[in-house]
Design a protein around this nucleic acid. Structure first.
Length: 348
DNA sequence: AATGCGGGGAC
DNA sequence: GTCCCAGCATT
C-alpha cells in the first residue's frame, strides 16, 4: 500500500479500544490473556438487555455480592431474586435468570457453544453470541442496537423504514459485522463495538471526530449520520387508568404478589383495580371495606401504555383480605417495581 | 412477522 | 414531549 487508506477494519477499532476501553465491573482489560468468568459475563448481559450501563451497574454489584457464583444464585429463592431485581424492569428476565442459573448449576457450568447457550432460558441470539465471544473467545459478533447503528452508518445500510425493510437491514448488518470479527480477539471486538456505539456513534449528534472509523464511514461521507439506521416508527401509547390501595397497619402495609407471568409478573404490588383505557371514575378494586382517603395520583410509562393510578390510603383493616400479605414498609418499597414505589410513596 | 414486556437518561 | 437502549419469548 502506498498510503494508509480509510478503513472500517477490526484493527483500527481495536487500536482505538486499547486506548479508550471503558472500565466496567464485569469486564477484563483489553488484550488480557485470561477470559472473564462466564457467570459474570452472562449476568451482565442479561441485566444490560435494553438497559443502560449506569442503571444496571449497581444491580450487577449487588447480585455478585449476594451470589458470587452461579450455584449461589441457583440456590436462592425466586422471591429473593425478584426482590433484588425490583426496579430494573422487564421482570421476565429475573424469572429466566433464576431458571437459567438452576439449569447451569445442574449442567456443571455454562455450555461453551452457541447452540448450547441458545437452549438456556433468557438467552437469545444476541446474548448467546456475546457470551460466546467474550467468555469463550468464539469468533462471532453479537449484534445489538448499538452495533446495528454503527454498522448501518459505516456501510450506509438503510432500507425503507418499514418492519420488513428493517428486518432485511438487520440480516445484512449481522452478515457484515460477522465478516469483520477478528478471530484472535472476538470479545474485545464485541465490547469495542459497544463502546463505540454507546459513547461515540450515538443516536443523536454522534462524536465523529473521536471515531476510529471516521474516514471510512459512508454515512458521514453523505453528511447524513442520523438518517441511519432506518427503523420503522413506533405506535403511540394508549392511556390507562386504575385505582391502587395502600392499607397500613402500624409498620406493615398490605401487598399482593402479581401472577407469575405478564406485566410485572411475580412482583409485589399494592392491591388495586384493573387498568382500563376507559376512565373508571368510581372507586373499584379495594381489597377490603375501609375509610379510604385520597392520596394523589401516580403516573407511569410502560412499554406500550401510559398509566395513571388514583391512590387511596386507609389506616386499619376492617377485615382480613385473602391471598395478600402484610409487609414491612421498607421491605415493600424495596421489593416493589417502580410504579409500586410511586404508589407507596404517596401514601406512606 | 408482530406484539408484549420497564425504566431511565439524553435531547 | 421523543427516542432509544448490551433483546427475549410468545403467538
Amino acid at each position: 500500500m502506498l498510503e494508509s487508506s480509510p478503513d472500517l477494519s477490526a484493527d483500527s477499532l481495536l487500536a482505538w479500544y486499547d486506548r479508550h476501553a471503558r472500565d466496567l465491573p464485569w469486564r477484563i482489560p483489553p488484550g488480557y490473556p485470561d477470559a472473564p468468568d462466564p457467570y459474570r459475563v452472562w449476568l451482565s448481559e442479561i441485566m444490560l438487555q435494553q438497559t443502560t450501563v449506569p442503571h444496571a451497574t449497581p444491580y450487577f454489584l449487588k447480585f455478585t455480592r449476594l451470589w458470587p457464583r452461579v450455584e449461589d444464585l441457583a440456590a436462592a429463592t425466586i422471591d429473593d431474586v425478584t426482590r433484588e431485581w425490583a426496579g430494573l424492569g422487564y421482570y421476565a428476565r429475573a424469572r429466566n435468570l433464576h431458571k437459567c442459573a438452576c439449569a447451569v448449576a445442574e449442567l456443571g457450568g455454562f455450555p461453551e457453544t452457541i447452540d448450547g447457550l441458545l437452549a438456556l432460558p433468557g438467552i437469545g441470539p444476541y446474548t448467546a453470541a456475546a457470551i460466546a465471544a467474550i467468555a469463550f473467545r468464539i469468533p462471532v459478533a453479537p449484534v445489538d442496537g448499538n452495533i446495528e447503528r454503527v454498522i448501518s452508518r459505516a456501510f450506509a445500510i438503510a432500507g425503507d423504514a418499514t418492519p420488513k425493510g428493517w428486518a432485511a437491514d438487520k440480516k445484512q448488518i449481522s452478515a457484515l459485522v460477522n465478516e469483520i470479527v477478528p478471530p484472535d480477539r472476538p470479545g474485545d471486538f464485541a465490547q469495542a463495538m459497544m463502546d463505540l456505539g454507546s459513547g461515540v456513534c450515538t443516536p443523536k449528534a454522534p462524536n465523529c471526530m473521536l471515531c476510529p472509523w471516521m474516514d471510512g464511514c459512508l454515512a458521514r461521507r453523505e453528511g447524513a449520520q442520523e438518517a441511519y439506521p432506518a427503523k420503522p416508527q413506533k405506535k403511540p401509547q394508549p392511556e390507562r387508568i386504575g385505582h391502587a390501595f395502600v392499607l397500613v397497619d402500624g409498620d406493615v402495609v398490605l401487598m399482593e404478589r402479581r401472577p407469575p407471568s405478564g406485566l410485572l409478573g411475580g412482583m409485589l404490588m399494592p392491591p388495586g383495580s384493573d387498568w382500563l383505557e376507559t376512565a373508571q371514575m368510581t372507586r373499584t378494586g379495594a381489597p377490603v371495606e375501609a375509610d379510604w382517603q385520597e392520596a394523589g395520583e401516580a403516573r407511569h410509562v410502560f412499554t406500550h401504555f401510559r398509566l395513571t393510578l388514583k391512590v387511596w390510603q386507609a389506616q386499619k383493616p376492617m377485615s382480613a383480605p385473602q391471598g395478600m400479605e402484610w409487609v414491612n414498609h421498607e421491605e415493600a418499597l424495596a421489593a416493589a417495581p417502580t410504579i409500586g414505589r410511586k404508589v407507596l410513596k404517596l401514601a406512606l
